[in-house]
Computed example of a mutant assay.
Amino acid sequence: MTFSLQKQFKQPKGILGWIIGKVMEIDNRKINKWSIKKMPIRRGDHILEIGYGPGYCIHKIIQKYPGCTVDGVDISSTMKDAAGQKNKDAIKKGKVHLIVEDISTFKLDDERYDHIFSVNNYPLWSDPKKALSHLYHMLKPGGTLVITVQPRGDEERDSRARSYGEQISNELEQAGFTNIAISYKKVRPSLTVSVTCTK
């Protein structure tokens, strides 16, 4: 049962996956808002969210910055359905585009994003170094990347958040990102780390 739930959190499927998505939306609300604030969003910006889940962040961004366009990449088709329902009006207007793919294989040839962000799914990436290389090429010069992680389950301790901060910042540096900054926020159930950088 525990293994099944772990699989659902990584790639939600079906009715249980939909429920997991709602749980993630409620649990991540504070750190989602914190992560969005870390991006200097301006009117007309093009933004990519990695692991959009039920579409909470996308909805918030479009509400607050209606002049922006947001793309989302998630490995779960169940979450695409949920996010599609939440953002159906913005999708109809061409303001939101949802993609189902692993971020380690998702790649575009042009520098199109002003900001890219990920909340609570970096530890699930199948190949973080390859993914960061792709993100570097998809981010516009001067663009912002934000990666936020709150350790959960067996990892639920402050020391793990700090080690994630070091790991992520090292991998960002290796990928060519600059102006790397680590910040922490105490949000139940555990310390949360957010790493920001620019291209």
Rank of each mutant, 00 (worst) to 15 (best):
Y56L: 15
G72T: 05
K13W: 00
I103G: 07
V187H: 08
K33I: 13
V195D: 07
I103S: 07
V119G: 04
N87E: 01
D71S: 11
V23N: 01
D110M: 13
E111L: 15
G176T: 08
I26E: 12
K129V: 04
E171F: 03
I99S: 03
I61R: 06
T2N: 02
I47Y: 05
T148Y: 04
I147G: 02
F9I: 12
K140M: 12
K88D: 14
V119M: 05
K140N: 09
G55E: 01
E155S: 10
K95E: 09
G176R: 06
V70Y: 01
I31E: 11
I116N: 11
D109Q: 13
D81Y: 06
D45M: 14
L172D: 13
Q63S: 12
T69A: 03
R112D: 05
T198M: 10
K130F: 01
N87R: 00
Q8C: 03
G44P: 03
S76D: 08
I62D: 00
W18Y: 07
D45C: 11
L135P: 04
V73C: 11
L145F: 09
H46W: 08
V195Q: 07
W34V: 09
I61Y: 04
K64N: 10
Y113I: 06
I91V: 06
S35I: 07
A83V: 03
K86T: 07
S163F: 08
A131W: 00
Q8Y: 01
V119W: 03
P66A: 13
S194Q: 11
K92W: 01
Q63R: 10
S163H: 08
L5H: 02
S133F: 02
I116S: 10
S133P: 02
T2V: 05
D114I: 02
Q8F: 02
W18C: 04
G14A: 05
D74M: 04
T192Y: 01
V195C: 09
V193N: 04
V23S: 03
T198D: 11
N120V: 06
D81Q: 08
A175C: 10
E111N: 14
K199S: 14
H134A: 06
R160C: 09
G53M: 05
N120I: 03
E156R: 11
K64C: 06
K92V: 10
P123M: 00
Y184N: 05
P12W: 03
S35G: 13
I75R: 02
P54F: 00
D27Q: 15
I15E: 15
V70R: 00
I180Y: 09
R29K: 14
N28P: 04
L139C: 12
I182F: 14
C68W: 09
N120D: 14
H59S: 10
D102A: 01
K95P: 01
V96H: 00
K107N: 12
I15N: 12
I61A: 08
I41L: 13
M79R: 08
M1V: 13
K38P: 00
I103C: 04
E25I: 07
Q167C: 04
K140F: 12
W125A: 03
I180L: 13
V187K: 06
K93Y: 11
S183Y: 10
R42C: 12
W34M: 14
P12E: 05
D109C: 13
A82E: 15
H115N: 11
H134I: 07
D158F: 12
Q174D: 12
